[in-house]
Design a protein around this nucleic acid. Structure first.
Lengths: 344, 344
DNA sequence: CTGAAAGCGCTTACAG
DNA sequence: CTGAAAGCGCTTACAG
């Protein structure tokens, strides 16, 4: 016995309700004109038959899938889990779904994108994933908007929305300075990622603006992971460098640093070394860390990202490659000495 | 100017390659018979035109979407992030995609499932989410396999795959006993969730089997979150109960407990209180925790779950509601005193 | 091995 | 407000 079971279509519903198939279609199309009485009759029949419209047929006609592709990298940073959930929630609220493509860390995500295109997604958001220019072109050709989330890819002609990373870095630098720090370690993320670079640059700006020499800052690679932060800290300390303050460009990095400092080297934070992070993931507020950090305005960022997708105006096409920066907020906790710093 | 751009179809490719549209379709269908030379000619043309098959049209014909729905709850437990990534990877490897539905914590996931059905998904996996029996019936009617991951829903006639939670709890109980503990707090998760209940039961089994009275175990609600674990610990200590050992039925719970114990009450782990968790999320191996726990065999669990979906044998339909339990592994770290316990 | 043609289940002008 | 009909872009028997 095959699965000829079910497969209720609009034709079945129409028959039961005593109307045309078109009427059924209209009853299930939000904007369509239809008499209230007819609609009710149809819903009743549909309910009785457990009818659910077939998205494939709909998508084939409308060329809209109501699916937004989310290309996710770096699973190790909880920030992206926060973002995923926020996207999923906000998209769901407007009747869209998130198709998640998890790509490996530095993998070029083109293969995933090929799949994406097959599904005629209404838009794609790139979080921490690369994408070839050819792929971008293909999306553009098809009128599929692509927007980069928390990352600016200058080679790609796509809009992007991120936190104001540069200013965030600057605030942290100033906070350290105000607390008396004069030598610094910066534990950076992906050197090709604008996110990391901008945070580092803002931080450097602040230090240089204070008249300190460039070599008062030492840079270490930490790959935006906890492990990376821990390893960079070991490298730093074993290398004989013990700065006044450490800036982990992501909270996970800072957490890795704090743990090494505390447990491996018996250094106290912030008494011996001050630390700051960036993101304000939930973990950073926990008792072992109490990390001072910049909060990324995830909700606002996701909202702007979705807005850039022009989901309800498909013909709008692809927007200009503008970069949106939303200010972050300094969350003052216990890893920088002294009174809470007030950004100007 | 509308987006009449692109929209390359198999007809265009056929024209350029000088073959029929059917031939193009065959070239892109893995199993189909087609001459090698023809296929090459077609691929060349397709490439030139940036052709990508339209999944909607394909899905409409084949009734297969190559999409598997993943209903995710409890975003707060990193374990589910691990599972998500593992699903995404494994599914991708066999040419399927994961459509993620994030449902709120205790929300009944029926609304999400309705969407799922529209997309004619090839299967749905439920992680920590409820689902009404009516919904299950609808899936079954359509021949869509549903399997519960890390959770058994007895009211639902679906297969499930989880860790051997009961035995895991038992091992931990025995390990505590071997280390000399005689009074226990169990910080439980969702009281309706089989996962939590099974772990608690196994733990209780061990304690009772050792001849200890039932009231040597006290139960607290911790909702499978870090915050829940922290709050339960406060409730416990403020209530004047200071057990020899605490079993958090998820690592995140145990982490919340350890932090409160350490930072709020200046209690040492494991000297003053022993702690154990369950899951072995990456965080539990970090320096502040070094948590002894049971490792969930995520890879194997995901593999079995996918196997239950019968993705390459659609007509197979829904399998029996059997429960698969895969043994977990004791990961011995530093939160239980003494030598590593050897489960029998 | 290949082509012509029916069919998958919707949406949406077009008439009425 | 409603129905008949064309069309969305594939897959897949069916002939050849």
């Amino acid at each position: 016995m095959k699965k000829k079971s079910s497969r209720v279509t609009s034709v079945d519903v129409a028959a039961l309700a005593g109307v045309s198939q078109s009427a059924v279609s209209r009853a299930f199309s939000p904007g369509a004109v239809i008499a209230e009485a007819t609609r009710e009759k149809i819903f009743e029949a549909a309910n009785k038959l457990n009818y659910v419209p077939n998205s494939f047929a709909r998508g084939l006609s409308t060329r809209r899938s109501n699916i937004v592709a989310l290309v996710l990298g770096n699973r190790d940073n909880p920030f992206y889990m926060m973002a995923l959930h926020e996207f999923s929630r906000k998209l769901g609220a407007i009747g869209r779904q998130a198709l998640v493509f998890a790509v490996e860390r530095e993998e070029n995500s083109d293969r995933a994108l090929m799949e994406v295109l097959q599904y005629q997604v209404d838009g794609v958001v790139l979080t921490s994933a690369h994408m070839s220019t050819r792929m971008t072109a293909m999306c553009h050709d098809r009128g599929i908007p692509v927007v980069s989330f928390n990352r600016i890819l200058p080679s790609l002609e796509t809009p992007s929305v991120s936190c104001d990373n540069r200013n965030g870095g600057k605030i942290l630098g100033e906070a350290f300075l105000a607390a008396g720090a004069r030598s610094f370690a910066v534990l950076a993320g992906d050197a090709n990622g604008s996110t990391s670079n901008d945070r580092v640059r803002g931080f450097t700006d602040a230090v240089l603006a204070a008249g300190l020499p460039g070599d008062s800052i030492r840079l270490f690679e930490a790959h935006s992971t906890y492990e990376g932060g821990a390893a960079a800290t070991r490298e730093m300390i074993e290398g004989g460098f013990r700065p006044d303050a450490i800036f982990g460009i992501a909270d996970v990095i800072a957490m890795g640093a704090i743990d090494e400092l505390t447990y491996r080297y018996q250094l106290r934070v912030p008494e011996d070394v001050m630390v700051a992070g960036f993101d304000n993931i939930p973990e950073s507020g926990r008792l072992p860390y109490r990390l001072t950090t910049i909060e990324q305005p995830v909700a606002a960022m996701v909202e702007r990202t979705i807005a850039h997708l022009h989901l309800d105006d498909p013909d709008r096409g692809v927007g200009p490659a503008e970069a949106t920066h939303i200010p972050g907020r300094l969350v003052w906790r216990d890893t920088i000495r002294g009174e809470a710093f007030r950004p100007t």
